[in-house]
Design a protein around this nucleic acid. Sequence first.
DNA 1: TTGAAAGCGTTACCAG
DNA 2: CTGGTAACGCTTTCAA
Lengths: 347, 347
Amino acid sequence: MRATVKDVAKLAGVSPKTVSNVINGIVFVRPETRARVEKALDELDYVPNLSARGLRNGRSGMIGLALPDLLRPYSAEITHLVVELAHDRGWGVQIEQTAAEPEREFQLLSKARANLVDGLILNPVNLDDSAVMSAGPLPAVVLIGDVDQDVVSQVAIDNISAARDMAQHLIDQGFRRIAAVGTPEVPRGASGTGRVGGKTDSVGTAASRLRAIGYSEALAAADLEPIEIALDRWSPEGAATVVGRFLEENETPDAFFCFTDTIATGTLSALWTAGIAVPAECAVAGFDNILESRFTLPPLTTVDFDRRAFVSGALDLLAERMANKDTEPRRIVIPHRIVTRASTARP
Amino acid sequence: MRATVKDVAKLAGVSPKTVSNVINGIVFVRPETRARVEKALDELDYVPNLSARGLRNGRSGMIGLALPDLLRPYSAEITHLVVELAHDRGWGVQIEQTAAEPEREFQLLSKARANLVDGLILNPVNLDDSAVMSAGPLPAVVLIGDVDQDVVSQVAIDNISAARDMAQHLIDQGFRRIAAVGTPEVPRGASGTGRVGGKTDSVGTAASRLRAIGYSEALAAADLEPIEIALDRWSPEGAATVVGRFLEENETPDAFFCFTDTIATGTLSALWTAGIAVPAECAVAGFDNILESRFTLPPLTTVDFDRRAFVSGALDLLAERMANKDTEPRRIVIPHRIVTRASTARP
DNA sequence: TTGAAAGCGTTACCAG
DNA sequence: CTGGTAACGCTTTCAA
């Protein structure tokens, strides 16, 4: 059995409270006593029971991180940073995946892992403002992504303008027939968004919708015809399949604007398979600037933003909410920029 | 304030025990009483406090997952599967990263997150058998990777023979000058295959050492000269830089055997930059068969193993240890195979 | 089948 | 500066 404060106290000849004081190191303890306690601590190889501590002071020292799909390199980058930066603050990270079941987001939001996490960073997919609103008394939550709501704090990039910028970059390069890959699966028309709880079908993720809007706006402004290629899931295999089929059935466009770098990976593969040279015959652009996109062939033009600032901002906001639930929700927008690489070089 | 069992009990006009019985659903409760309790549960939006439950039961319902570098797509795949399969067993997953500080592995091993996790899946890097031995009374731990020890349960692939098989595949394809990328950073001096004994300083990760051994063995058997390109970190940028420099200073080999697919990504990029065609002028092979390797240009020949079986095995072993700490440590070896794609086609 | 009470390991309050 | 004691919310003896 593991040693407890009582055991340590007994061995050191002090009370449990004193041991606690030594461990938490806030209160002044006489150096001599402290030494005795520390010796006992060491001797018994004392490890605090975090469940007990969590029960007592109402905080577990853990935060939750909920991402739609952990399989993607983008998720890996976010996870990596969250774990690293949370560690610096002394927090552990519990990880969850939401895409498998739509209601999971809502569950996490309303229960926050039943007090086992002190706060939650949620990258919502299906969630919209109404869902957030109706979640009842909220735990400390920060959304990462771009959801139109002001109930909880949020860190985001401006998806619409980023997509517009990228589409504009492609237009500026002289491309005319510019296809978007990764648009929502449902023709937009119903402005109402997907509602969580299984009542309405999802019409695509928030990011997907917003990027589609930015793309459309830029093309409309240049009087170009949009070409939308929908994807049910943002995976390389999905993109390769769908784009491959598109290439068989359609004239090759001047450029593909892929809504993530992962999609671009699949698109590059499909073009390669079809024997179409990039960028000579067709350009490709991505979104997110994942680490690997510098090493695709050719290297990928993409939308970049400071991921560390992004995650760091999320943790700041979370700390704020955890310290005081009554603070106004804040929103941090991280700037973005187009990183130009060979994949969109002028033919 | 959140509702507790007491509140629910009061509202339903029963005792806390009955509420507990209803929640855990093991003991028979009269349907009528059950209904009343469930109504109260619902009405008060009761959420159990997992810290309290954890304190009482001695189990938190969470496991830890510790990987060296969360940034890699390989880590994302493992994480994805662990979260998914652990979820099926009703476990939450706490995630940790170990590569940043070498002692972290040891800490995790000896403390297991101070009882906040019931078990730990650890992918060791620096750990060797002596470290495992000396960790003292062990929590439920399963190692993923290939460490030469039999103190704790382990799931692994046979790295040596997998690397040998891949090297042999390259030899069979007719390549003679075959370079390995990702070998340990050994101070050259020890005999060819830097074998490492118990206490010696680490000279690279376990996987790196074992793969180097398999590679050397195959080349030696074919009477070929090994060409080892060491890497301090298995990243695409590292590989691109080091291989790029290698290409400037040396004659291009017939093939690169990269010790991970991530390294292969960087290698392909370096070859592309140098204007060397793959596989026409130089072949490239990887290891792990990450999702993206089907979509590199050209698609990557690599070592594949059933990742789901791998993770599922790890969870089985962990469950075994958690249920009964006195069971013998077991070792599961997952079979591997070479997946042949265009990157190693005969010139 | 249900109720009362004890206790898991910590920390906080209040004495001394 | 330190010791006793209570309490966090839950589950689990034991009794009824």
